[in-house]
Design a protein around this nucleic acid. Sequence first.
DNA 1: GAGTGGTCTAGACCACAAT
DNA 2: TTGTGGTCTAGACCACTCC
Lengths: 239, 239
Amino acid sequence: MPTPGFNPLYQQVRDILKERLIKGAWKPGDLLPSEMQLANELKVSQGTVRKALDELVAQNLLVRRQGRGTYVSQHDLHRSLFHFFKLEPDDGSRRLPTSRVLDISVAKVNAEERSALKLSKADTVIRIARVRLVDDIPIMYERISVSETRFPTLAGNGEHLPNTLYSMYSTDYGVTIASAQEELRAVAADQIQAHHLHLAEGAPVLEIRRIAIALDGNPVELRVSHCDTANCRYVADLS
Amino acid sequence: MPTPGFNPLYQQVRDILKERLIKGAWKPGDLLPSEMQLANELKVSQGTVRKALDELVAQNLLVRRQGRGTYVSQHDLHRSLFHFFKLEPDDGSRRLPTSRVLDISVAKVNAEERSALKLSKADTVIRIARVRLVDDIPIMYERISVSETRFPTLAGNGEHLPNTLYSMYSTDYGVTIASAQEELRAVAADQIQAHHLHLAEGAPVLEIRRIAIALDGNPVELRVSHCDTANCRYVADLS
DNA sequence: GAGTGGTCTAGACCACAAT
DNA sequence: TTGTGGTCTAGACCACTCC
């Protein structure tokens, strides 16, 4: 007995719940109402709510814990490490590198930032440059750009930025990074990259150009990394 | 009213069906029995079969067509192009490159092949070297190794190999490639790579080291590619 | 019209966590 | 003991394909 609507009920339920997540009705770590409560509220059966939740769990937006309830995902360290950080030392250890911030500045968008972050000509961005190190050895030089409008006070943090920026986006600005697209190339290190990576100018480095997408589907961060892959590699699983 | 077993019923059903796929009881393109038929045969409800099929569909092993039935996936060109070929021209066009075979040989395994393909010291491998081109411009130099035992007559095909090897593995040898793991690095082109890619020796090239995994979980192909990323890029979606 | 997958429901029971 | 998610079932109806 579907009420109104054209799409399958469980998809409508999925979209309603996702909307609430985007609006911040529930925050990371929060406990959702039980399946029966949601079913009663939305006038559908528990099985339909379950199927909607299934999809959100598959998208890593929710986590189920048997006997306890369904929670909003916390994307903290584990996710930063295993989901968004694909560079892995050759010895196979999966450590998150430390980072040293080199510079934070505010500027008008350039063409690349404009198109990547879908900004307008007049917008300003915050740019962060940092080096990331494993065992005190520099392995990547990163340049990060975000909209100043979306992250207003970020530049004011001085150089006291957390190692995992995505956690901060979530806790301080309510912006959850849900996915990302990366483009990789092999390029010759320029003078700056070479300097920070302790390499010769022109040495081959792995360039990673990442656009991070928020829950609502909007791009919120452009990150261009140059990596020394002498002792580490980028891993991708195709399945 | 579960019959025997400890795992959830639908997982047992999923494993049984997967076993049959691995054994080749159904070949790519075949129509599976209907959900009701499978349910009756396995003494479970239709909903349980459905949940098992759901997982196999999610793994891209099966395809459902409403009103027609459930089919074994055909991994042909579409999959080769969109699933296993992550190199994309800068203009965004998604064309599968052509290939020119340079050499096929048979040899004792080397250390890398042994560990990647889980072979023993005495095994032999077939090695293929080829160049792949887009618009007649060479973009990657590939070296491919497979066990001669698993692909006995492959070397005899002379240089008449299809562009998409995975289709051939499936149709000629019953080996379905289900997933792959890739490791990427930026390296300096050696003399051979530079020659085939029309680059200067030492130019930065993207090295992709891929191990392809068959349906049964065994590694069956090692492929090391060196790519000129001047006009194309490796794309990865993190989600 | 017959057969297939797709959706939705309702109810039973199990496994687990908290109290 | 209570409440949660996890599994399993049975039956109804819909949407699509084919004959």
